[in-house]
Design a protein around this nucleic acid. Sequence first.
DNA 1: CCAAAAGTGTTTCCGTTACACCCATGC
DNA 2: GCATGGGTGTAACGGAAACACTTTTGG
Lengths: 250, 250
Amino acid sequence: MSKIFFENLEQSIQNIHLGLVVDCVIFTFHEQKMKVLLNKYVLNDKWMLPGGFIFKDEDVDAAAKRVLKERTGIDNVFLRQFHLFGKNDRVNIDEKIKLMENYGIASDKLPTFLNRFASMGYFSFVKFDEVNLIEKEDDIYQWFDLDAIPQLSYNHNEIINKAIKMIRIQFDYLPIGYQLLPKKFTIVELRKINEGILGIEVDKRNFRKKMLASNLIISLNEVRQTDPYPKPNLYKFNQETINELLDQET
Amino acid sequence: MSKIFFENLEQSIQNIHLGLVVDCVIFTFHEQKMKVLLNKYVLNDKWMLPGGFIFKDEDVDAAAKRVLKERTGIDNVFLRQFHLFGKNDRVNIDEKIKLMENYGIASDKLPTFLNRFASMGYFSFVKFDEVNLIEKEDDIYQWFDLDAIPQLSYNHNEIINKAIKMIRIQFDYLPIGYQLLPKKFTIVELRKINEGILGIEVDKRNFRKKMLASNLIISLNEVRQTDPYPKPNLYKFNQETINELLDQET
DNA sequence: CCAAAAGTGTTTCCGTTACACCCATGC
DNA sequence: GCATGGGTGTAACGGAAACACTTTTGG
């Protein structure tokens, strides 16, 4: 719901699939911490999840992909449905009306548009280095630490919490580290991701042992020279194991 | 989409949430086998999943509950979202048009209705004894063995397969047996459910040991007199453990 | 007398957990 | 000289897997 959308509201609405939108909880990992991408319209005072409409002729999953690409520049992204938020909730509609009024649009103009929209929640993991946050004049983006999410618009705090819950439930089936880390990474980074998602501390010796015993990662016998002292060993993922995971899951 | 719905199509359509429907994969357990409930309109030649529209002012989850209650008579049912099927697929629309024509309705009458509807998939587990299949003149219901599902309308075979995949992924978090079995049950029944869902055979000694070690079930020290020889011991679920499971999951 | 179905124990194996010190650098 | 942060090994425990025979009724 950006400026352009509202300026052509009556026309815009002809091209969208009614009754359903997508919202994306986009995770990344940077400086040893899990982060979530949030979005703010200049005319709105609260942050919110990146989301958007579905075009009439567009697959719903494709709409989520498009939203993600529009925001991060990343194609070919890892994206999974986790929950449909389908409460018939006045609060969301009221917030929408307020936003429209901020844009100077009479709220009684388009009754169809003011019906409830259900929101399909997607989570995604992206590599921090590959992201190019694409900002427009009235539309800004920022990464927030997972443990420092502000109060968001609509029910978006609930959506993030639910995403994390669903990720934990599916944890063993998701190639999370693979999506978040660059080609070469350290075991400590992998452990920090696990800790960030699961919300617990993990014994570092046991974690290392477990990772090496699984055939998920392969040592490159190479240390990262850019680090100060103890220069950490680098690993890569075992593509075969990752592919097996991805196959199972589909 | 029953007869009454079509007879009042123009009016019916005023009251429904556009763009989204629900489809339910309802599992039960009977005679040692997992079964799925299917539905057939007399005017249609293929079986399909029970499903339905969402009313304008109705929560999406509530619509799924209502659909389930209308078909099985069961209130207060265990029901979980598992996937949104949102392909922009001509085939579904063509099947819908065909069905409308069977009801004698011109297919170009209501363009809104012929737009793509995304379908939210729910799975559910119900106790066979509590079900009262509610049939109408043009609308019949039948339980099918999980390993003998016929070819269904729309993409409904795909929906069932996905439901099973998602149940397997969440298996440890779902109180499946608890939903499917009566108050008193045998360990063999519980094992058959596991085998049915996971699609594998399970060693009966190990399974028994595991169940007794978990505090999921409690022996009633009582055998089922109605069985022939070896009269099996009866167990009940430990309500506390079940409640913990249900809490985690929400 | 034999087919059917529930019940029963032991051993092996492997993954999980708990736990404390070393080392070289940069400040 | 000390704070930082990655790396290292062992022992105890517990859950998972493999595996075969007994029992009695009903036909």
